[in-house]
Structure formats: structure tokens, C-alpha cells
Design a protein around this nucleic acid. Structure first.
Lengths: 182, 182
DNA sequence: GTCTATAGGGGGATAGAC
DNA sequence: GTCTATCCCCCTATAGAC
């Protein structure tokens, strides 16, 4: 019936489509989030009680994601776009999934960032965090056609540039001295 | 065959599915971008040769999008999520579409922002712009479950808060005095 | 326990009726 | 020119073979 491989044995091993989709996503996302969390843990160990500098935090957050695009021949770029897309998926079961997979990371990194702005109102803090995360995801999802989008100024799949510019950008979003204080 | 209305006459009027999808998107996106462009034109008229202040620019950019969520019973929120989703769509024909619909707006607003940072390297400028746009889109796509994401701190569909925080955030991303100069 | 044959449903597009 | 009846393929999931 098929050229090389059995087709729908998939259903036996992975259940229905929804479950398969989540398994694939999890498989891609877990290692990224794991790398992030251990990276932060190590950095905090080294910091020895002091807050980890913001640029370091954002680097640790973004590098595992942008790093997917380092090997253009591997599955990374595809995974990157898959993740990007999944995050704007309106499917109801995705909310629960996103919470399970990303909340721990967000909470953990949120804490670390928060130490630099302990008196910032929680609501304001969370909005900024949300914007920063959105910027990162958008960048990851757009890496492959930055050249097109910028009419040739930026290069495609330039994950190193994305990373360094993102770190600068995100750090600027949480400036030490803001207009409103904090 | 159907309860109330003829079904596949759609195909006659709109051609194939891809075309229909683009028509729907265009219909939602065009008025938003139109509002943005005329808003900026008016602001520039009033500014009388001076650069339009950054907060005004970002307000003009974001308000038409976030404003979709003002009437929760209307089609706006649905349109907002549709647009959000379409932007992370990996479908090949979407790139062309996005360029057609969004490049003019981005170019126009880019110019206006650029006047505040004429000596910033083009690449750096475009990266920041990309991050800001990503933050905005992510916010629009997430408005409906901010409460869930923030464990109750932020409210759902709070487009006014989203707007004001975004304006602040985006303005901070283009600070008058940066570490690197410009 | 592993996989395949097959049924069932849905969606898209064409060919042709009005 | 407008719309509808119908076809076909693909995709999903179950039932049952090995």
C-alpha cells in the first residue's frame, strides 16, 4: 500500500491525532526547556546569592531556542517553526499543554528577572515579560525570512545576531532607572 | 442538504480554499492597516515637520489591533486571533501575502521611528523593530488568556492595559540615550 | 503485543443544471 | 452568470489478523 513503511501503525503507538501532536511537540520542547532551567540553575550557583545579570538570564532563555537554527540541515529549524506555530494555536487543549510545558520555565526565569525589579508592580512586570517572550518567539519564527522582511538588510537564519540583539533588547525592556521608578 | 444555506457556492465566488482564506484575512487586515496609516499621516501633519513622538507612533500602531478586542461580542476578537495565527503560518503563499499587506505599514512606521534614531545601524534598528512587532502580535494573540497565563494577576481581554503597557515597552526599546550611543 | 486492512466521515473542487 | 449535485481523495480510527 505504501512505498517503504507501514502507515497507520502510528495510531497503535501514539493514540489519536491530538495525542500524537502533543508528543511531537513535547519531544521538541522538553530539551529546550530543560537546557534553559539547568542553565539558569548553574548561573545562580555561580552568582552565589547575587541576582544573575539580566543579559545572562535572557541569553540563557533565548539561546536554546535560537540554537535550533544553527544546523540548517537538521530538524531544528523545522522544530522551531513548529513550536512557534503551536503557540498561536487556538485549539483548546493547547492552553493546558502550554501551561504544563512553559509555566515552570516562565515562573523560574520570571523570579530571576524579578530580583532586579522587586518593586515593580506585578501586573506591569508580567506585561513586560509577556512582551519579551513574544518578541523572542516572533524572532524565532521569522528567522528564516528576515532577509525578505528587511529588504536585504538582515540575513536569513542569523541566529547569532538574533541572540545578541534580543539580549540587548530584552535587557533594555527592564532598565535599571525607569521613568516611573521601581 | 443543509439547514439554512447553500454550501459550496463559495467555490464559485471565491475560487479555491487558499484564495478564500486570503480574502478573509485581507478583509480583516486592510481596515486595521488603513487606520494605522491615516492615523500616522494625521499625526505627522500636526507635528509640522517635527518627528512624531515615539509613544504616539506606537499607540497609533497598536490601537487598531488591540481595539479589536474592545467589543467581545463582535467579530473582533476572533479576527484578532485569526490574524495572529496567520502570521505564524508556515504556508508558502503567506510570505507574499504578509509582504503585500504589512510591508507598507512597517516601512511607513519604520520611517517615523527612525527619525528618532537616525544614526542607529540599519540592522540593529530592524531587529528592534521586529522584536517590537513580535511583542505586539503576541500580546494580541494572548489577550484572551492573560489571566490564565499570569495566574490571575492580569485580566483577560484587557485591551486598554495591553495598549498602555505596550506603548511604554516599545518606547523603552528605543531609548533616547542608549549604552552604545546613536 | 504489534501491526494492517478497511470502514467511515469530511472537505474540496468540478461538471453541469438552471 | 449563479449555484448545486456529486465525485473523489485523504485522513482518522477501529476492528481484527498475525
Amino acid at each position: 500500500m505504501e512505498a517503504k513503511v507501514n502507515l497507520a501503525a502510528v495510531n497503535y503507538h501514539h493514540g489519536d491525532k491530538e495525542n500524537l501532536y502533543l508528543e511531537v511537540l513535547r519531544r521538541r520542547i522538553r530539551p529546550i526547556n530543560q537546557t534553559r532551567l539547568t542553565g539558569l540553575a548553574i548561573a545562580e550557583g555561580k552568582a552565589d546569592g547575587q541576582p544573575v545579570p539580566l543579559p545572562v538570564i535572557f541569553q540563557l532563555l533565548a539561546e536554546p531556542l535560537f540554537g535550533l537554527f544553527a544546523d540548517l540541515e537538521g530538524p531544528g529549524p523545522h522544530a522551531g517553526r513548529l513550536i512557534g506555530r503551536s503557540l498561536s494555536e487556538p485549539l483548546p487543549f493547547m492552553e493546558k499543554f502550554q501551561a504544563e510545558e512553559f509555566q515552570p520555565v516562565l515562573a523560574r526565569f520570571g523570579q530571576a528577572i524579578r530580583r532586579h525589579h522587586p518593586s515593580l508592580p506585578p501586573e506591569e512586570f508580567l506585561w513586560r515579560l509577556s512582551f519579551v517572550v513574544g518578541a523572542m518567539q516572533h524572532a524565532a519564527a521569522s528567522l528564516h525570512h528576515m532577509k525578505f522582511m528587511t529588504r536585504g538588510i538582515c540575513r536569513d537564519n542569523d541566529h547569532a545576531a538574533a541572540l545578541s540583539h534580543f539580549v540587548q533588547f530584552a535587557t533594555a525592556a527592564f532598565p535599571r532607572n525607569r521613568p516611573g521608578g521601581g
